[in-house]
Design a protein around this nucleic acid. Sequence first.
DNA 1: CCTAAACTGAACCGGACAGTCCATTCCGAG
DNA 2: CTCGGAATGGACTGTCCGGTTCAGTTTAGG
Lengths: 203, 203
Amino acid sequence: MDRPLTPKGAATRKRIVEGAAEVLRESSVVDATLDDIRRQTGTSKSQLFHYFPRGKDELLLAVAQYEADRVLDDQQPHLSCLTSWDAWRRWRDVVVERYRAQGDTCPLGALLLQTGRTTPGARAIVVTLMERWQRELAAGMRAMRDAGHLPPDFDPDQASAALLAGIQGGVAIMLSTGRSTHLEAALDTAITQMRAAGDRVTT
Amino acid sequence: MDRPLTPKGAATRKRIVEGAAEVLRESSVVDATLDDIRRQTGTSKSQLFHYFPRGKDELLLAVAQYEADRVLDDQQPHLSCLTSWDAWRRWRDVVVERYRAQGDTCPLGALLLQTGRTTPGARAIVVTLMERWQRELAAGMRAMRDAGHLPPDFDPDQASAALLAGIQGGVAIMLSTGRSTHLEAALDTAITQMRAAGDRVTT
DNA sequence: CCTAAACTGAACCGGACAGTCCATTCCGAG
DNA sequence: CTCGGAATGGACTGTCCGGTTCAGTTTAGG
């Protein structure tokens, strides 16, 4: 991650990453070759290795990081202000829509399987993504609790962990079935459960 | 899937599938070569193509089916008799233990990513697995409802979908983090939620 | 301009690996 | 015993693809 060099070469690097991401989305990771990426990005082999000296794995890792960043960005600004039931509902809709649009490709998952989960780099990307994601959810839950919409004994840590798991599984199932029912069920039951707990406190 | 031929050559086929499954578990799918499988199973190239004429994909698909069958088998007999809170708890423990033991390999997921989700065969395997799994969960919930442990307006279809999603996501997260916290959170909140609903009916 | 360094392009290499081919062995039926 | 087909072994091959090399071109600073 040394970057002493980059006037406009940085733009090229960015173009490579984004182009590679596009290639990896439409074709499976196993099928995608460096030549495909080269063609798509209008670059050549040597550039790929110029910007990613350690080869394909390094490039894939960069793409993985790029995709990971997009995951949370795509949920903004809703994810960061889950302070009302209405906000939760809007966020839910955004998540469902985002993954429904993504269809049956899971760029991140495929990438990480390719580079190998054992690779510390790959592991780190997904771990920090999950941590940040869950932290946002838990923060929203705490806000709701502090505002009195949830009972004081509500456990945001466990609830956010369960919700995150439900989202991941819902997306995974959608990849195979093509239906978003499980993702919606996971989101809806989680929110319904919270509202039920909230009703109990107001009663 | 023509099987007019197999006195005890079928045993060889079985040996190949099981040996291949073993290989695929310890090494990633991308790394595993036919030679690895050949070596592990004590067979030769020609046999692999004799029993799986359509090549590696056909073999991988057979292994995927084998792994898929194991998933539910490993949860028996608990999965099929979720008729008491105690049974639910036991099942929960079995699931957590099973996946914790499996560690950071996901044979099925890796296989399906390799053969491609678009392949009708691969899709079918995972879809039917999910359907059967969810049906078992929903059956357990209905049994609990009929026994009066859950309120009549409890929706087993949605709840089982959400629970299944939570399990899948919990396992997926465990693959990257190595921690089973999310899987446990998903299971525990689902069961806790059911018990809370049940308490409401008895009150 | 000029020159050095950053950048680009394309031909090339070497290894790995799925799949083929044929020779050999095994086994059961007649 | 023997004949035929199934089962097996293993060498061989064609291809694909990550990675290298090097010669050519643009860019920036003086």
